[in-house]
Design a protein around this nucleic acid. Structure first.
Lengths: 262, 262
DNA sequence: GTATGCATCTCGGGA
DNA sequence: TCCCGAGGTGCATAC
């Protein structure tokens, strides 16, 4: 690993910089800081007058333009953006790309250039996550009493015409289907559950109970569930996947080992 | 505007860099490039072994960690992340933050540092967009014949217990409610419409037609609509907001003027 | 390729 | 503040 692979490109003469940039696309990550304006046309039209922003172009041809605030980029292009071209227009650096399939275009001009760099970044590591919805479902399947005492799981990810049912089971000789959400329930969740119930009643001529599992329920959702004879069950993921004081603690490893070990 | 406000911070001595960084949080955008590992614990747990990535910390305390691929950051924190602290641990630069309210933590260590900079970025411009769903609804309201000849709009954004109805109108003396989507319809859209229809039939004892407007309909969605006596109407936003060959063309301005002028 | 649903979704608007 | 839905959603996964 060569530490010098992070390389600052002189911003002048500009034509040399443009040559370097065009040669570097697809090879290295490009980072440009400067005052710029941006125009996007595609699924939406957007314009952005001059402001100081960071432009990142990755070697998969994804493009990200970040302003001084917020997590979400101001403009972007998904990977394989289509040909990216740097050029000089009215003595300003301009980046232009047009995605062939969708015809969408993004054009960014830099009246002021502060900084250009490229970087041969290597990253073989994969982001490993634990504690998403599927992990919560797995946990509930292993601990069905959390849903209710005596609950028995029959199937998970049971596929129906109206979508996959998270958990299907039996409780007190009655069939139950369960929709699991890791976040606060919303009206659409309740409706999704109703859809499943309707499916079983219409297609399979079966009477089933429906339970929506979530850490929290707004009043409106509870009302809707009640009106439709559906049930709610509060289950906090935090009691199952407690947040550690420091994520580097060895205990975090335990969680990941649990995921792999199952 | 001082062009020198983009400032490269020497990576050694490291303790000086750390001091500079801690003094710069909330003041300037910070950009760090280097090989790092990252641990997040909160709504989910994630671990990321060493790889070359860019870390951006904005003055609103949003944090973004980008790897070499994709538009989506590997790790991030929303604005007002909570106190951000740089320190040296095992002679490595470490960034740590813990959000008070949610207790979630993000820790990033840099075994290799390639580059540190800070930037007093100014951006007074707002992203102006045209052609989102609300613009499409506005256009349809002005051109109701696109929905069907003789259609008359009564209200838009009509609020009900089950959510706001995009367009409410009358056609051939029959009430019609319309749900507008700019993107391809999906099963949930069809269900959302059904919810509205049920609301009118149950609460207001009114029989109403329901139309889902979208540029494209998967077969399954069409089937569901049909089964529930709902209608589909194909309307391509592209015929209304055509994509320009170059987004900087003066014609793009026309679109934005239209938005403001209405 | 299309279809579908989760997401540390983010973000803005409205009550 | 919470609630709710749009999004240039991104993205993985199943088909």
């Amino acid at each position: 690993m060569d530490i010098t692979n992070f390389e600052i490109i002189p911003i002048s003469p500009l034509d040399s910089a443009v040559k370097r940039l065009n040669a570097t696309i697809r090879e290295k990550m490009i980072i440009i800081a400067g005052r710029n304006n941006a125009y996007f046309d595609g699924r939406i039209k957007s314009k952005l007058e001059n402001g100081d922003r960071i432009l990142v172009i990755k070697k998969d041809l994804s493009i990200i333009l970040h302003g001084p605030l917020g997590v979400k980029p101001l403009n972007w292009q998904k990977p394989q953006a289509g040909p990216i071209e740097f050029k000089i227009e009215n003595s300003e650096l301009v980046m232009f790309t047009r995605r062939k399939k969708t015809k969408e275009t993004l054009s960014i001009s830099f009246p002021i250039l502060n900084f250009i760099a490229c970087w041969h970044a290597h990253d073989e590591s994969e982001l490993v996550i634990y504690g998403d919805e599927s992990d919560l479902v797995r946990y509930l399947v292993s601990n069905p009493d959390l849903i209710e005492p005596g609950f028995t799981v029959i199937r998970t990810e049971y596929s129906t015409d109206v979508g996959p049912v998270d958990i299907r089971g039996i409780s007190n000789q009655e069939e139950v289907i369960i929709e699991v959400k890791k976040r606060k329930a919303n009206p659409q969740d309740a409706h999704q559950l109703k859809r499943y119930i309707e499916y079983f009643q219409n297609e399979e001529k079966k009477k089933v109970r429906g339970i929506l599992v979530a850490p929290d329920f707004p009043e409106k959702v509870l009302k809707y569930l009640e009106e439709n004879k559906l049930e709610s069950r509060i289950i906090h993921w935090e009691t199952i996947f407690p947040i550690l004081k420091r994520p580097t603690e060895s205990k975090l490893e335990d969680f990941f080992n649990k995921k792999n070990g199952e």
